[in-house]
Design a binder for these strands. Structure first.
Lengths: 204, 204
DNA sequence: TCCGCCGTTGGACGTTTGCGCAATATCGTC
DNA sequence: GACGATATTGCGCAAACGTCCAACGGCGGA
């Protein structure tokens, strides 16, 4: 198998195991067994298990980020872009992806590579949101004095709320997560209540 | 040593180690070394290491909750109570306690005991905050139509922001976490900007 | 004074971990 | 068809883990 393909296969297998067992308790042998190969092979492509886990997390998270980013770039207006953002970020059927975020945040303290990856992707999400806010401010549809801070606040509120849903199940109703986050965004950006509530979100 | 005291001593030692190394990588031998006793002793009081870790997490979280609760109960007004809340919740010198929360949230999906404990304590924090808001509304100093929702939003924003600080180090400035959270609370409760900013917080 | 309970010891046992290494299989190239 | 590079194997290693257990020791009751 070609080196690039093999690397991808290892990362894929790691994702599959991590979703099932958690990032923290995913071992070299688990990944090897998932691929049906030997454990030594993993170390032939990655210097340490830390790197493998970081790559697996990155694969999932970066893919989501790119999907949201592409969708938002296609939006006609900043308001539309924000609607897309909330529609894709909401943890509807991909709780497992958010669970990987929880794993990564917890594991960040112990695994340097995971921390670096998690940090970089979190910053990228915030940057994406901040850029959208800035363009909305420039265009005149948003009113916001601190786009960077607003982006962090919206993102963190969303993370904190989604966390409750994914970790605890039903402490918060699922629809409230995105409804509250959009409400906060409307307040942050000086928008009318309901502006950011798209039809797609109303159904969820 | 009396059985009850010994149990408490084990939990204390476990907390001390977990603060240093994280809950997930706290071992029986670590705890024994911390106490200056043998490792076999731990298993004489706890059936498994899982129980020890669960007890340690519960102790830390419940202790923090109780401390905040007591401090807030002593406050003269709901505004004062909220100031106390932010002053104690802010992850200033106790990042380690928040790291325990990160561990718990990540582990909640896969360990029922952890999930139950984490869920119960999160609900208790929300209840404490919601009760304060309700009393402020009744007293006329707050304006809020949805105390329960507001409590979740304030708490989740705080969690989401603190998460960035603890997991990633410096993605967000430490002082912004509590400043932004108090700002959100002021907005939620119809308070003047700066009302909730106590002197203690200004220094941090 | 002796006995027996029980807190406590300290190490053995089996498993699992990440990692490294020599041997082997495989495949493109001359 | 032989060769060399390299993908892959399979196991070994040392360390660390949770758990268990036989033995020790001090203290209170008979």
């Amino acid at each position: 198998m070609a080196p690039a393909d093999r690397r991808a296969a290892i990362v894929d297998a790691t994702v599959a195991v991590a979703v099932r067992k958690g990032l923290a308790s995913t071992t070299v042998r688990d990944v090897a067994a998932e691929m049906g190969t030997s454990s030594g092979l993993i170390h032939h492509y990655f210097a340490s298990m830390d790197e493998v886990l970081a790559a697996a997390f990155e694969r999932v998270a970066a893919q989501d980020l790119e999907a949201s980013s592409a969708l938002m770039a296609r939006a006609a207006t900043p308001v539309e872009a924000l609607r897309s953002f909330f529609a894709t970020y909401t943890p509807a059927d991909k709780d497992w992806a958010f669970q990987l975020w929880l794993d990564a945040w917890a594991e960040a303290a112990r695994r340097p590579t995971v921390r670096a990856t998690s940090r970089r992707l979190n910053l990228a999400w915030q940057g994406l949101l901040a850029a959208t806010i800035r363009s909305g401010v420039a265009e005149g549809s948003f009113r916001c004095m601190d786009p960077d801070g607003a982006a962090w606040r919206i993102l963190s509120l969303l993370d904190g709320l989604a966390l409750q849903v994914v970790a605890h199940g039903t402490t918060i109703a699922r629809r409230d997560v995105v409804a509250w986050a959009t409400g906060a965004a409307e307040s942050e950006l000086g928008l009318e209540v309901g502006t950011l509530t798209s039809d797609a979100l109303r159904d969820s």
